[in-house]
Structure formats: structure tokens, C-alpha cells
């Protein structure tokens, strides 16, 4: 990962690194934002993409003129279906999620604390009118990978000692990927396991408002 100020490049770098984290043959649910870029970086790796609205085996966006408005993903974008895909209803789709049958969710976060507890659905002081499937995913999947820019646009830390944004649930994240670093969480402790090219541990300490163990 190269450190770039350009937000687009940052987001692509994060998606690329997150793609490396996924295992061959896993069932993956990709959240909105950065995670939607991941399929571009999967290379030869084969995974099954699960969409909350009832599709396992989601394919790329259709060609113009081939759009079926009844074949969409959880972001309501038109998609295609890959060979071997399966379609089902919302209740069954969330049974897959809550029941622990989906291997990994890659989701964006607004904030994460040093234990791995995350906030990804509401901003303090703003109307709380949407949650979608965020909390079901956090509660149910086997592994939660968070993708987010290391700090906010104004440079504020998003990795904090304790959440000031509304929590998404008790479940802790397993991995956090930013443009600067990769962290893992175990037993309420955060570990710095990787830094991007050109980034120092001091850089990470300066932009992270949480304590972590350096485990490079």
C-alpha cells in the first residue's frame, strides 16, 4: 500500500488489501462503500458474494441494455447472477447471516474502538433513520473485516479508545484495514500487524486515538 492523499486511491488501496484477506471459496457479504470495490481485486480467487435481498453468487454489473430491475444487490444496484448462484427470500437470507453461515462480512465503519467494537450505522446528533442489514451482519457472520480511511476528512481519529458514535452491537471486529495499516483484535486488545509502505509506527500512533500492541 502506498500512502496517497487522493481519497480515491486510498479507497482502492484499502479494497485491494481487503481482497487479500478473503479465503478461496468463502461466502462473503460486502457492505456499501469501500467493500463494493473489492471484486475488482480478487484476481483468480473464487468467492461467493451474498446479497441480503436474497442472492448467493452475485455477479458483476450488467452491460448497458441488459439491466433487469428485478436482479439487484443490497445497494439496489443492478447485478448479474453467476453460474451456481441461488436466489431466496429475505427471511432465509438473514437466517444465513444470523445463523453464522456467512463466512465473512467486509463492512465500512465510522468509528472503531481499541477492543474492536464498531459504529457503522448512525452519526451522533443526526437523524437515525436507517440501519439496513448492518447489525445483523455484525451479530452473525463468522469474521468481520472493517475497511475505512484511517482518519476523517478533517483529520480526526476514527480509531478511538471508546466509541462516541452509536455502537453496532457487542460483537467485535476481527480485522481493521485502513490505507495506513492493518490491525487485528483479540480478547479486547488491538494489534498493529502491518503498515503501508512509507508509513512508520510513529505515524500510526499520531493518527490513532487508541492504544495498540505493535506486532509487526
Amino acid at each position: 500500500m502506498n500512502v496517497q492523499n487522493n481519497v480515491k486511491t486510498m479507497r482502492q488501496d484499502i479494497a485491494k488489501r481487503a481482497a487479500d484477506e478473503l479465503g478461496e471459496g468463502e461466502v462473503i457479504n460486502l457492505g456499501v462503500g469501500i467493500p463494493t470495490l473489492i471484486p475488482e481485486y480478487l484476481g483468480d480467487k473464487h468467492v461467493f458474494l451474498h446479497s441480503e435481498n436474497g442472492l448467493l453468487g452475485t455477479g458483476p454489473a450488467p452491460e448497458a441494455g441488459q439491466i433487469n430491475p428485478d436482479l439487484i444487490n443490497a445497494s439496489k444496484q443492478p447485478v448479474t447472477e453467476l453460474p451456481g448462484s441461488a436466489i431466496f427470500d429475505s427471511a432465509l437470507s438473514f437466517a444465513m447471516i444470523r445463523g453464522g453461515h456467512v463466512d465473512t462480512a467486509v463492512i465500512g465503519a465510522l468509528q472503531v474502538d481499541q477492543t474492536g467494537e464498531l459504529a457503522n450505522w448512525a452519526v451522533p446528533g443526526k437523524d437515525i433513520l436507517g440501519v439496513g442489514g448492518a447489525m445483523d451482519l455484525v451479530a452473525g457472520v463468522q469474521k468481520v473485516i472493517l475497511t475505512m480511511t484511517h482518519t476523517s476528512k478533517s483529520g480526526e481519529a476514527k480509531i478511538v479508545e471508546s466509541l462516541t458514535y452509536p455502537s453496532s452491537g457487542y460483537r467485535k471486529a476481527d480485522v481493521l484495514i485502513t490505507e495506513k495499516a492493518v490491525f487485528t483484535f483479540k480478547n479486547n486488545q488491538m494489534y498493529l500487524v502491518e503498515v503501508a509502505d512509507g508509513v512508520t509506527v510513529e505515524d500510526i500512533e499520531e493518527t490513532t486515538a487508541a492504544s495498540f500492541v505493535v506486532a509487526l
Binding site: 427470500d89 438473514f94 437466517a95 437523524d127 437515525i128 433513520l129 440501519v131 448492518a134 445483523d136
Partner: peptide, 21 residues
């Protein structure tokens, strides 16, 4: 969102899986 802010629409928010179940 506007209707809710203006006070004439009540909204009960549920996680999507909780709603489906």
C-alpha cells in the same frame, strides 16, 4: 426524512433481518 422531521410521520426502525424474521 422530511416528513419525520416535520413531525407528521412516525418511524420505527428495525434491523433488516429482525424485520424479515
Amino acid at each position: 426524512v422530511n416528513a419525520w422531521n416535520e413531525g407528521w410521520l412516525e418511524i420505527e426502525l428495525l434491523p433488516q433481518g429482525t424485520m424479515a424474521e
